[in-house]
Design a protein around this nucleic acid. Sequence first.
DNA 1: ACGAGATTATTTTGATCACATTCTTGCGGC
DNA 2: GCCGCAAGAATGTGATCAAAATAATCTCGT
Lengths: 237, 237
Amino acid sequence: MAAAASLKLPALERLPKETTNQWVYRSLRQAVMLGLVPPGRPVTIRDVANILEVSTTPVREALRRLSSEQALEELDNRRILVPNMTAARFRELCELRIALECHAAERAMPYMHGAKLDELAAIDKRLDDANDAGDRERIIALNQQFHRFIYEANPHQTVMPLVESVWLQLGPFVRLALSRLKDFYQVDRHSEAMAALRRQDPLGLRIAMEADIRDALTHVGTNELLKAYVESPDSIA
Amino acid sequence: MAAAASLKLPALERLPKETTNQWVYRSLRQAVMLGLVPPGRPVTIRDVANILEVSTTPVREALRRLSSEQALEELDNRRILVPNMTAARFRELCELRIALECHAAERAMPYMHGAKLDELAAIDKRLDDANDAGDRERIIALNQQFHRFIYEANPHQTVMPLVESVWLQLGPFVRLALSRLKDFYQVDRHSEAMAALRRQDPLGLRIAMEADIRDALTHVGTNELLKAYVESPDSIA
DNA sequence: ACGAGATTATTTTGATCACATTCTTGCGGC
DNA sequence: GCCGCAAGAATGTGATCAAAATAATCTCGT
């Protein structure tokens, strides 16, 4: 029946106390983040409902939520799809990420005490290991964890949801960058950032953060990789 | 019947081609923006559905969407409410607004040509008039329009949704500030911003923007007004 | 006759609702 | 005070209706 031949969803395992809505949301979010949903192709409620074997209501709510977070785009036609990436949009998102996260880091700095710095170093250590092992999934996860841990040190959270939104929009392409890169300079940047945190040096922190983000993203944004992807996504994925 | 004595919703008129969902969303958004929903008091789906005389489904989706935009908060209990404002959170939101909007303005600057500058000046002129007339509703609306017009000059939009989210969270309190203020310095700041745009001077633009936002918000954030509100909202509203 | 563009018909998709189910919470008996 | 039960509230389902996309047909000028 309902064909949906080209749409594959990861079928995340369902957590114990989780509502259907949350489960569908997590699944779709992950699918978008990993770039499994082809940009431009409409994502219909019924297709997703059929694939995940749930009714339409939770699916529509999950799609709507992702639209609110700019991970999906709602057209006038009521069609929902993954927005197309362009070089210009990618550049905008990079700069936005830098502005947002430098700000977040600076506002969180005063709350990074000794114990928290040790925890952060531990995360970085694990990231280092994953790096050596070449485990991409873990590298992405731990890198996000590293950044999140810093920003969330600030107990008065306002930025993190916005940061997540930008991550969601960049998600698939960051993965793309990693899939081609052999080694990462990020570890050094992370060390610089941690040193700046230890010194409580706002400017140093900003510089390290910006460098870290740029290192991670410029490999996609500037070279021909993004262009190739934009033109024919399937050839790379 | 359904009591909900203290919850009043503006009952926006329903636009022609609008779905129930969109209408409920607009109504709730406006209510939150104007501070009509008391923070801390749970907003139940049923209450809203009864007040607006629609079924629960569109209400739930509207509430969920506002939660995604950080205008509402979903507790573990599945209860939904307007997050409480604290002095610290307010400060965070101000700084976030400044960081975001300075960035947005700077990224939009190259796209502000002659014709667009004239349009901007026209908006500012109308704002000036509203200011003289003391029409608060229009002042708020036009001020937002002024800022939005600048940021949206950038054709590769990524920031505006994030800015809207912050506006939503600050909304009620900005209104609060205006309700007490006699005159505004913003007009001058707007002139400075326009001058900087004309010169294509990034630093000057940032300075003017930051000053403009600070002028609008510090009156709430620093003085006893916010404190009074946080302690007993009803005494001020 | 032929084909580009408009138009209608069919089918797909989204929106809304009422009801069933599941979860939370607050009350009252012990 | 604690436990359990009942009322209230939210989630999820399937049905129904309206809107939009796609397919098929028609019109008209050449």
